[in-house]
């Protein structure tokens, strides 16, 4: 496939038939793990991610912060999640993603409310298909809200990028692999504060602006999906 791949067809659509500012379908669910304080499961296109959140005293004791909580996200990929078996355990990529997700979540959680504590976020990627860090982050913030950890806002993320010379929203696996650039971004929607922004590849400043405004426009829909997922756990069907 490498070399002369055509990511945008002649009628302007992408390989999977989406238009340039169309997202893949997202399915989000909370309360999937009973023993966890909070949990979420997300299907973002073909990505499948489970998140479990636990709040506890930070361990070891010398790692505790006397005035605020620490956030420890652990992103891990199942061996069967990608085409060629992934060797289990942390590697350079998963450690980077764990770090950026921890930092993005730290700016959403009101850390001073839980001194000495640690918010553990366990992220298991069951199936990966481009954009897992954003899918994980979106699900993590819902799982944390489900756990009842005080938060300033729900973190909302999305990716955009350049594929076939065109700026497109929510890259698919092929667009990620053979496209020109990939820009994952996450914001706190109330204030518009950016909590995660990475760029992999080359884009011009104009293209960057186009990509980020495309992402910001898509945030509303994702935010609604997050809220609906939280709501669904607590709406009870009436009897009779």
């Amino acid at each position: 496939m490498e070399g002369n791949v055509k990511l945008i067809t002649d009628d302007g659509l992408r390989l999977d038939g989406r238009s340039s500012n169309e997202m893949r379908p997202i399915k989000l669910q909370t309360g999937v793990i009973e023993k966890a304080d909070g949990s979420a499961y997300i299907e973002w296109g073909a990505n499948k991610v489970v998140v479990a959140v636990y709040v506890r005293e930070a361990y070891p004791k010398h790692a505790q912060n006397m005035d605020r909580a620490i956030v420890k996200a652990r992103y891990s990929m199942a061996g069967f999640s990608v085409e060629e078996r992934k060797r289990p355990g942390p590697d350079r990529r998963t450690m980077e993603i764990s770090k950026v997700i921890s930092e993005a979540l730290s700016s959403a959680i009101i850390l001073e409310k839980l001194p000495r504590a640690e918010v553990d976020v366990f992220i298991e990627v069951l199936q990966a298909d481009a954009g897992t860090r954003i899918a994980s982050l979106t699900a993590s913030s819902v799982a944390i809200a489900d756990a009842g950890v005080p938060m300033r806002d729900l973190v909302v993320g999305c990716t955009a990028g350049k594929a076939g010379g065109k700026i497109v929203l929510d890259l698919s696996k092929d667009e990620d692999n053979y496209g020109e650039a990939d820009i994952p971004m996450a914001i706190l929607p109330r204030t518009g504060k950016v909590v995660l922004l990475q760029i992999d590849g080359d884009v011009s400043p104009e293209e960057f602006d186009e990509a980020t405004s495309m992402i910001v426009n898509a945030m509303k829909d994702i935010s609604k999906i997050q809220r609906d997922a939280l709501m669904k756990t607590y709406s009870i069907e009436g009897g009779e």
Binding site: V55, K113, G148
Partner: peptide, 24 residues
């Protein structure tokens, strides 16, 4: 003023609280 939790609004005579659905 903004909510910290996913929960319901509870108003008493003097105060307003958010009662979370779940919290440690």
């Amino acid at each position: 003023y903004f909510s910290e939790y996913f929960g319901v609004i509870q108003k008493s005579e003097k105060f307003i609280d958010i009662a979370p659905f779940n919290s440690p």
